[in-house]
Write a protein that binds this DNA or RNA. Structure first.
Lengths: 157, 157
DNA sequence: GGGCGGCTACTCGGATATATTCTGTCCGAGTGATAATGG
DNA sequence: CCATTATCACTCGGACAGAATATATCCGAGTAGCCGCCC
């Protein structure tokens, strides 16, 4: 079970975008320079966030990405599931119904117990990430961070 | 984030082994037949469980795998982490220290906030799985299951 | 009949190919600002 | 000086290769039981 590296990228990018003034944008190139990431691949990974309605993208000069809604309304889970998919890492393939030990269908009306427990664990994980919004993250940062982020992210110097 | 298919296999195999009489063993071939799985690959996936001390393997005729300790002392987390590794799915690569936005080292004494939240979520996941032992799983099964499992798993007919 | 030795068949364990997914790169369509131009 | 218009640089978006991991397979080393043989 391994999350793609891009998960870290988009989480940091979303946090940075949350520090911009309302309406301001940052391009994929700017974000890539800010974190020293491959620009094209980063842009590719930001696309699913746009499709998921987490980010909004505007083209043309002075265009780029911005949050699609307020930082308090975007959770880490939204970001992670947008880029990595919302499906559970454990996929029950009903092997209890295969082979010599195959259970009769009438015994499989209830979900596989193991799958249920794995789903519980996944729900706990989702609950933990769903309880943290981007605004919560910013709240734990020193107060001088956003100004610095804006300057280094969108500034030219 | 996707768990290997073999995770399902070893969880079910461990649960089945927990239903055997104490000291009894089941070979990889028997388990593979029981669930209709590729025998060689299943054996390969059971190996890390032996290394982790969850299962014990005995060679030779009438050999095979058995639980290394009591079912109540083996959690689903033990099984999952044995086969999939215990490392967190999110790996912080400290991109906050790279690129134009690189934070000075003295600001990075505290762990990356995003990584901390991801670690919290992973801890919640581990806590959920760690709270369920194989004995707990057996406790939720109908009482006639273990006898049937023993018969179909180790029987010849 | 009992003990011993060799043999055999069965087990796990590790080394070796193939498929799928993640990572990285490129180029094209679209858009908004910009600057020249004419009134 | 202002409105208009054509240009152009910059943006995202999707199509195309390379690398890492998961999946599947095979063969070899080791061992426990078993059978025959000897005492």
């Amino acid at each position: 079970m391994k999350l793609p590296v891009s998960t870290e990228w988009v989480l940091h990018c979303a946090t940075s975008l949350a520090q911009l003034e309302p309406g301001a944008t940052a391009s994929a190139a700017q974000l890539a320079r800010y974190y020293d990431l491959p620009q094209a691949y980063l842009a590719k990974q930001l696309q699913p966030l746009v499709k998921a309605g987490v980010l909004a993208a505007t083209t043309g000069p002075r265009g780029g990405f911005r949050l699609a809604r307020q930082a308090a309304e975007i959770t880490m889970l939204d970001v992670v599931e947008a880029v990595d998919g919302a499906s559970s890492p454990y996929e029950c393939r009903e092997i209890r119904q295969q082979g010599r030990g195959a259970l009769p269908p009438e015994e499989c009306r209830t979900p596989c117990l193991i799958a249920a427990k794995m789903a519980d664990a996944h729900a706990a994980w989702r609950g933990s990430l769903g309880g943290v919004s981007l605004a919560d993250l910013l709240g734990e940062l020193p107060s001088w961070v956003p100004r610095r982020t804006r300057q280094r992210l969108t500034g030219t110097g």
